[in-house]
Design a protein around this nucleic acid. Structure first.
Lengths: 202, 202, 202, 202
DNA sequence: TGGTAACCGAGACGGTACGTCTAGTCTTATC
DNA sequence: GATAAGACTAGACGTACCGTCTCGGTTACCA
């Protein structure tokens, strides 16, 4: 038999349907009306759950928003792994852009806003969403370096922030489109830089 | 009749000191306690002004936050104009980073968050803060192109989003520092790209 | 110049209609549904006032119940003052019983219940309602003593508690009627006692 | 061993200790903190029983309060039976006052308050507590009448309400003491009445 | 010099949502 | 079947801000 505990705490077990209904109501509200419509009371009403139940499982608005967002976001933008790191990067960012253009994007703006007023939410966001993607992106870049596609001594973190920052920027400000052409251009930019001649970086 | 409006409306003229006190209270609150502490009631109390007076001049929280932010931000991060576009870019971004590390940064996070729940605030933010900087950045880049420093056919908007996006990213998530070394690295990155060999971009 | 202050505090003056609407809603609810229906939320909804407004003026449920009760109770059961203290007592108690059979009685049960869980309400009840009536009843009894109608050395407080206690008993327990015949009988009882022969009390 | 049914229903028999623990916890809470502290959840926690168990045996708060009160009250204030009805009455009321000054009094106020919001509790209170005492008091008074100590044609119910009402009054309002001297005075009063001369009652 | 129009403070008002509390019901596993 | 544990719906509690309103009083100008 396996070592996993099972534990089986006493009492009525948690109702999974209620939990799902709450998370569903949460992201539906967050998606349709943004952070303004996203209210614990509204979530309670829409999900049919009692406020008490919500507060039993999530300490505050931010935590609930985070989890409902993760549900939606987790199943998207995988990291392809072909024999070209450049192609992988491009492919991944196209998928990422696509997810941001959809439901996940509409939720993400709310999460980022909420994260500004609640440090715990920010921490959870970084830990649960940002960090894993960073980890994968870092691996991709380092694979590229190992394969000789990318420059050695690269500031990998910086590259990530410039690349993802581009998308966050367009998402949060919505001042310019985030279509496939734009994605291609930003990938080209980051690959080749803006300088006309290849100079030796100091 | 003269061209300058002046109009000189009747009645008691607006009290400039009150206006200043309100804006000062606003950014002090926004700076010290973030969006959570930034409350019209708190601004009223701290400034000594009546809520009515605040609402007479600013339609809502976002508008007041915007204006108090602009007061602080406007006097920073100028665009140098030497004979090297690359140097100008680098110099500007160092100044920009410095301003974000200070008071302006602490306010900016609140503004961006507020912009997510109020379209008018987002519009004002783009119009009053983002657009002018973009305009100047665009000019800088195009000057560089004209001088043969930067590649022709550059997606100028995209470059801006990647560059500024980097800073917004670090500011909003605070997951990595935004010191001068990081600025230098990101400038290098954007100048030269990540690819090892200079390839012809499709 | 008159002696009365007037004071005239700054700001928007209190809206008397709202105040009245709240008190009216309060006693209507208290009357129709008792303490169970008497909820700040229900009072707010029925009166059209905001909960905030209610809490601005009354510290808790008990205080509001008290005041709305006093409104109703204050205009009832006066103390007649003829040349017969016995007749006055009888007349007063008939009026008192009548008021308890009406709206005031339905409110009073709620007040007494609330007073059991909130010392402040009990204090207010005694101070505002019980004490003035006691004062008048005491005066009536002492007038009777002075006129030679009532025994000297009477425990006036005890008489009051026995008399009013009779009514509270019937009101709170509702186990027996409180009609005019019952009032007459209790007055007779207290006047003459239950002993068959007039004995000298130790 | 007797032949009586025993019935022996199937399943685990009811745990008497749990029942006792619940009732004990109930009156301890009711006694120490009044109706405010008397919470089903608090009773459950203090007794170590589950809420379910409480609700299996008592339909609601009022019923539990009633029963725990009866436990305490039932063993007190017996009705002596000597050859003087007057002495018996006096003796009984002294015992009754003593019980009200103790634990039973502290519980009684809660019961009366609860009875105002729940008709079932009121009915149970009258049925289980008030009625038996009334029955005995009535018997005492009628014995007195039969022995020629008390007036014939007495409104026995009215006498009871005036006498007990006195005690309820002092208990619920706590505006005056309920010591032995006060008891003596109220007995004297009810025995002899307040009128100076023995008049013929209309 | 007095009228008038817009200013300002204070603060009451109707609302919305918060996060907490308790009631009473239910579901599960254990005894 | 009784019990402990504890999740669940329901709904009131009292608080915090929102944005609007109505006062009394204060400038400045213009007639």
């Amino acid at each position: 038999m396996s070592a996993m505990a099972e534990a089986k705490s006493p009492g009525r077990p948690r109702c999974q349907e209620t939990r799902d209904a709450i998370l569903r109501a949460a992201y539906e509200l967050l998606e349709s009306g943004g952070l303004v419509a996203f209210t614990i009371e509204a979530v309670a009403e829409r999900s049919g759950a009692a406020k008490t139940t919500i507060y039993r499982w999530w300490p505050n608005k931010g935590a609930l928003a985070m989890e409902s967002f993760l549900r939606v976001a987790e199943q998207h933008s995988p990291f392809p792994q072909t024999d070209s790191a450049r192609a992988d990067l491009r492919a991944h960012l196209h998928l990422f852009a696509k997810s941001l253009r959809g439901r996940a994007g509409r939720l993400l703006t709310g999460i980022v806003a909420e994260a500004q007023k609640d440090p715990a939410t920010r921490a959870a966001f970084i830990r649960s969403y940002v960090a894993p993607r960073r980890q994968a992106a870092r691996a991709l870049l380092e694979r590229g370096i190992a394969r000789g596609e990318f420059r050695t001594g690269l500031d990998v973190e910086g590259v990530c922030d410039a690349l993802y920052g581009f998308f966050y920027m367009r998402l949060l400000l919505a001042h310019a489109p985030m279509d496939d052409a734009a994605v291609d251009r930003i990938v080209d930019l980051v690959l080749s830089g803006i300088s006309l001649e290849t100079e030796t970086v100091a």
